[in-house]
Design a protein around this nucleic acid. Structure first.
Lengths: 132, 132
DNA sequence: TGCAGATACTTGCATATTGCAAGTTTCATA
DNA sequence: TATGAAACTTGCAATATGCAAGTATCTGCA
């Protein structure tokens, strides 16, 4: 099993450095991929699982747990019988948008062969994600 | 031994997504810590090892290798007899600054207890790091 | 009644990565 | 010849990742 108290959170802070603290939240191979998908409007487990990167199911479940614990996302029911949940960004989560934008810009400039990202992505603000 | 072709690079791209591509470069617990220190002016192995986060020596060596391979840093000799090297950011590396700034801002806003970062850090530009 | 299909996860296990502590190499200097 | 500095390397235990398959809870339809 993936340790409940692991990688993307949970460890005692390594230092007071803001960069180090942030890495304890999303410093791994998958967390920002999940955030990216939530930013792009996905909400359900099944949708998140369908990314082109093919995140393993157990890792996805683990990361959603961490992110909920760290209050980056909220897990809210969208139906009863059977009870099912969807995942929404909190304000803390929506505020990760500028990081995704900076990462995307860097990648666009320095890593060839990446997808072309529409200019309106860079025009988005965290507030745009906080509706509903 | 830490696999030469691992985590911070080397894997076949998971997708064409710029975010995913970037994570294949620095999506782990340590790489951005090393970049942070280089941005802050450190250059030598010994200096990089002295961070408050206490990066394990083998991980540091591995990350420096990856970053050099990915052309984020350059390894240049600073003395002969015995030959010793220091590490400098390339343009690709210096351009990571906006990401560090965004990360630092997010952390400052959402993770309590982090160090106070001087305002002039946010005023830095990649060009400031490209001297020499 | 009962069986297929959705959806959201969980489990087991092999492989890969991390982290710790100690060791190696190459000189310079005393 | 001995000590020290700097930059790594090595061995190995502890963790995390990735894959494939399994479970749980219903709905809808025969």
């Amino acid at each position: 099993m993936v340790d409940d108290d692991a990688k993307a959170g949970g460890r005692l802070p390594r230092s007071g450095c803001p960069v180090a603290n942030a890495l304890d939240t999303f410093g791994d191979r998958w967390t920002l991929i999940v955030i990216r998908d939530l930013v792009m409007g996905k909400r359900r487990y099944g949708e998140l699982q369908k990314s082109p990167e093919n995140i393993p199911s157990n890792i996805l479940a683990d990361r959603l747990r961490q992110l909920e614990r760290l209050e980056v996302i909220r897990r809210v029911p969208y139906q009863e019988r059977p009870r099912r949940y969807e995942y929404l960004l909190t304000e803390k989560g929506a505020d990760l948008l500028p990081i995704l934008q900076a990462v995307t810009r860097w990648s666009g400039r320095h890593i060839p062969g990446g997808w072309q990202v529409p200019e309106r992505f860079f025009a988005l603000t965290p507030d745009d994600l906080k509706r509903e």
